[in-house]
Design a protein around this nucleic acid. Structure first.
Length: 193
DNA sequence: AATCGGATCGTCT
DNA sequence: GACGATCCGATTG
């Protein structure tokens, strides 16, 4: 079964809506011959001026410029001196910047590669290898070189494909994780795996 | 089970 | 010069 790529129009909508709809989709990473895939289970939205918690809140800088660029591309950032995290650039209406942080995903294929990429001794539990934004990025071999990767094409080795539809009844809406500003906005979406 | 501190450095003030 | 859109191992209860 060939899984269709998600087209760019999908990302040209309200960032929170995109975060919600990214649940169930497949994040795929092709490294050489092997393909690593995981189903997105948690994602959260970050917007622009109206969102003090967003990297884009204070305007465009060298780091966050992807958030202002073409939707459907990857915004990868480095933080805490040791971690990378992946976002899908998304915004709708007249918004100038926005991205969806992919916080967790359920491993589907290439689990052995993911475990190897992680390096830590969590070989036993297939779930724990990608249940956090930095763990996911590390497991899927995502770093600086994926900054700006086009998620709507296979060419850059990092893309998003169709997945099972997730009914509203199963989606849990919550507050965002790890932030200290705009704490009240409920832009975190997840499904229990 | 819950909490705490250390790791570690790019980015912005 | 301070502080993270985090993770992990150790410690405590």
């Amino acid at each position: 079964m060939t899984l269709r790529l998600i087209n760019r129009g999908f990302y040209a909508r309200d960032t929170a809506a995109v975060a919600r709809d990214l649940l169930g989709k497949r994040l795929v990473r092709r490294i050489g011959g092997t393909e690593v895939a995981a189903m997105i289970t948690e994602a959260e939205a970050y917007k622009h001026r109206e969102d003090p918690a967003s990297h884009a809140h204070n305007g465009m800088t060298e780091r966050n410029r992807a958030m202002f660029g073409e939707v459907g591309r990857a915004y990868v950032y480095f933080t805490y001196g040791m971690h990378y995290c992946v976002n899908a650039v998304a915004r709708g209406g007249r918004s100038e910047a926005g991205a969806v942080l992919i916080r967790a995903a359920r491993p589907l294929s290439g689990k052995d590669v993911m475990i190897k990429n992680r390096g830590t001794g969590d070989a036993g539990d297939a779930r724990g290898i990608s249940d956090g934004p930095a763990k996911l990025a590390q497991a899927m071999g995502i770093g600086r070189r994926q900054y700006g990767a086009d998620l709507t094409r296979r060419a850059d080795g990092l893309f998003v494909t169709e997945g099972p539809g997730i009914p509203d009844a199963v989606v849990h809406t919550s507050t965002r994780v790890g932030i200290s500003k705009a704490v009240g906005k409920r832009w975190n979406f997840s499904i229990r795996v």
